[in-house]
Amino acid sequence: MNRITDHPVLGRTEKKCIEFFLDDTKMTARSGETIAAALLANNIRTLRYHEASGSPRGIYCNIGHCFECRVEVDGKTGVRACMTEVCSGMRVYRQQQLPRPFQEGGRER
């Protein structure tokens, strides 16, 4: 478990547990945290696959600037996981590599 429940200076935290879904799998989160934090606490680091290359991507800046952590939330794409509070029953999906039929003039590669 990678949650810090008892910090030597900041003390203990006790927050309500809630449930949400990543790619239709049930996950547990703490109320008031971001989607990115909830997923990291569940040992999930890959938040999307690059649109063109398909390479896995996770959080980078965690303060909303880099847009590396964008996910689909309740049907809306391009939502920053690091800036969005996780809610009970929320459905989060990883964005996938997109087809590129017109790349290189549509020729087979």
Partner: peptide, 14 residues
């Protein structure tokens, strides 16, 4: 760009 690489500030906020 590998998941698990982050800015130092990202680790601080987490």
């Amino acid at each position: 760009t590998l998941p698990g690489v982050m800015s130092i500030g990202a680790a601080q906020v987490m």
